[in-house]
Design a protein around this nucleic acid. Structure first.
Length: 493
RNA sequence: GGCCCCUUCGUCUAGCGGCCUAGGACGCUGGCCUCUCACGCCGGUAACACGGGUUCGAACCCCGUAGGGGUCACCA
């Protein structure tokens, strides 16, 4: 069996699109599964868009997701000479020819055909030119493009067995003599892509179904160049709720991998979600470790139909596909706490919340506190916002919490400072001890324990709800709890 | 419009002729737990696009229809 070699060939657009990330992921999984190689190739022939920043954006996105490659990045522009050389080889072997038709002429013919509602394909005018005619035009310095000569014998068709779609066939009569080199001498994508894949010895081309229409032409190119045709697998596209292709232009940053990074997604959680968009293992599993996923992945189990990215704009509760969020939550609450801590550390450092003690003397406290609150958070970023009161004193008070837990019981303004004194007197600040003190106070005051407990919650954490209150007090610590309760009155003004 | 691909709950999907009165997950929702919220657990809601065949039997096979998507450049 020949070596499995796949590639991911993004064109640099400044960020890694989640659709591109999914393509990269499938290629990576397939390579890993078969002990093959993944080649990263930057298709930078569009010089306008290909800035270093764009390239960095894509590479960072891949690295963040944990997608590793074995070769590259290679840059398509570096091989332009080779692409053109191959085109001339095709001219010599009779598989391609020079075409002197101008763009204007062709546009005109196309417009005419469109008006008459006729099919349009290049009419092959230059294909019939004799050697002398070609020489004469070249001598006059006329610019030309190189066209591939499609041999259309009766009933001819080109077909291939797609690993996702099955047999796909297309009549040769539906394929025009396509251009492979521009009149300015620059090779076109169709050619470059094939020449690069041949040179990189790509065995399997795994790409989106938007490339399905190119495949027949490319197979013709492989054959004419005398190269083995790779196996193709065309994966379904990802659309939005209106069945439109998701794009940055119409959907904004939601389509960029970087967005998820910024919003505090766990990288593997996003990968896990993405892989499920158009693929399933055939059983009920949805959560996979890397190893499990590599083991389970097969091209044949990729779906044939497009999937929809379930994202409703303007729904604050779901800032992206709810399933993606739920998978992220799953990882957030089940990952070893040390791993969560690593992600929180990076986030805290970026936000100025990090304290060196969290890696040293306060390590146990730090881990226990993360563990205490993680089950009600959605992303890593929530620790610094919703969970801020555990790590800093400059947290905010939820308006609804103040209203429901404090203002509704004005007496708390007096009671809470009293409680502060009692808590300050405790020599053993344990959950059991604080609970006893609080219940005792509630009983003396003849109010339900919840009134006191929830009042404390809001004063101490700023929130309406949270973990077991007594655990929270221990986590935040006697000093800070007492200090916050003594100043409770300020919240009633 | 031509060509190509696709069509199971709102969404992601299982299903490859009988195990389907169609299973799981997310979402939504009822309940349990409880100091609140979340987690967790138990339950509910909701789908085979339509019409013809083939067959003893069809979500699964065939043919139409409808719908959706992709692609038709000297872009990638």
């Amino acid at each position: 069996m020949t070596e499995v070699r796949v590639r991911f060939p993004p064109s640099p657009t400044g960020y890694l699109h989640i659709g591109g990330a999914r393509t990269a992921l499938y290629n990576w999984l397939f390579a890993k599964k078969h002990n093959g190689k993944l080649v990263l190739r930057i298709e930078d022939t569009d010089a306008e868009r290909s800035t270093q920043a764009s390239i960095d954006g894509i590479i960072e996105g891949l690295e963040w997701l944990g997608i590793t490659w074995d070769e590259g990045p290679y840059f398509q522009t570096e091989f332009a000479a080779e692409h053109v050389a191959r085109a001339h080889q095709l001219i010599r072997s009779g598989h391609a020819y020079k075409c002197f038709c101008t763009k204007e002429e062709l546009d005109q013919k196309r417009d005419l055909a469109q008006e008459a509602k006729r099919e349009y394909g290049y009419d092959g005018a230059c294909r019939r030119l004799g050697a002398a005619e070609v020489a004469e035009r070249e001598a006059r310095g006329l610019p030309y493009v190189v066209r591939f000569k499609v041999e259309r014998e009766a009933g001819g068709e080109v077909s291939f067995e797609d690993r996702v779609l099955g047999v796909v066939a297309r009549s040769l009569h539906d394929i025009e003599d396509f251009v492979i080199v521009r009149s300015n001498g620059q090779p076109l994508y169709l050619l470059s892509n094939v020449v690069d894949d041949i040179r990189d010895r790509i065995s399997h081309v795994i790409r989106g179904q938007d490339h399905l229409g190119n495949t027949a032409k490319q197979i013709l190119l492989y054959r004419a160049l005398g190269a083995p045709v790779p196996v193709f697998a065309h994966m379904p596209l990802t659309l939005d709720l209106n069945k439109a292709k998701i794009s940055k232009r119409s959907h904004g940053e939601i389509v960029a991998v970087q967005f998820y990074q910024q919003r505090g997604f766990i990288p593997w959680a996003l990968a896990n979600f993405l892989v499920l968009l158009g693929w399933s293992p055939g059983d009920d599993r949805e959560i996979f470790s890397r190893e499990e996923l590599i083991e389970a992945f097969t091209l044949e189990r990729i779906n044939r139909s497009n999937s929809i990215f379930n994202y409703k704009k303007d729904d604050p509760k779901f800032f992206t596909d709810p399933k993606a969020i739920s998978i992220n939550e799953h990882y957030l609450r089940t990952l070893p706490i040390e791993e969560v801590a690593g992600l929180v550390e990076a986030d805290f450092k970026a936000k100025g919340l990090w304290r060196e003690g969290y890696a040293g003397a306060e390590r146990a406290w730090f881990l226990a506190t993360l563990d205490l609150v993680r089950s009600r958070f959605h992303t890593i970023a929530d620790f610094a916002t919703l969970g801020r009161a555990y790590f800093a004193d400059d947290f905010e008070f939820e308006e609804a919490a103040v209203r429901k837990n404090l203002l509704k019981f004005p007496e708390l303004k007096e009671w809470l400072p009293q409680l502060a004194d009692r808590l300050a007197a405790l020599s053993d600040f344990t959950p059991e001890a604080t609970e006893a003190v609080m219940r005792e106070l509630a009983e003396e005051l003849k109010v339900k324990p919840g009134v006191v407990i929830n009042g404390v919650r809001t004063v101490v954490t700023g929130r309406l709800a949270g973990p077991s209150m007594f655990e929270v007090l221990t986590a935040i610590g006697q000093q800070r709890v007492v200090a916050r309760l003594r100043r409770a009155g300020e919240l009633f003004d």
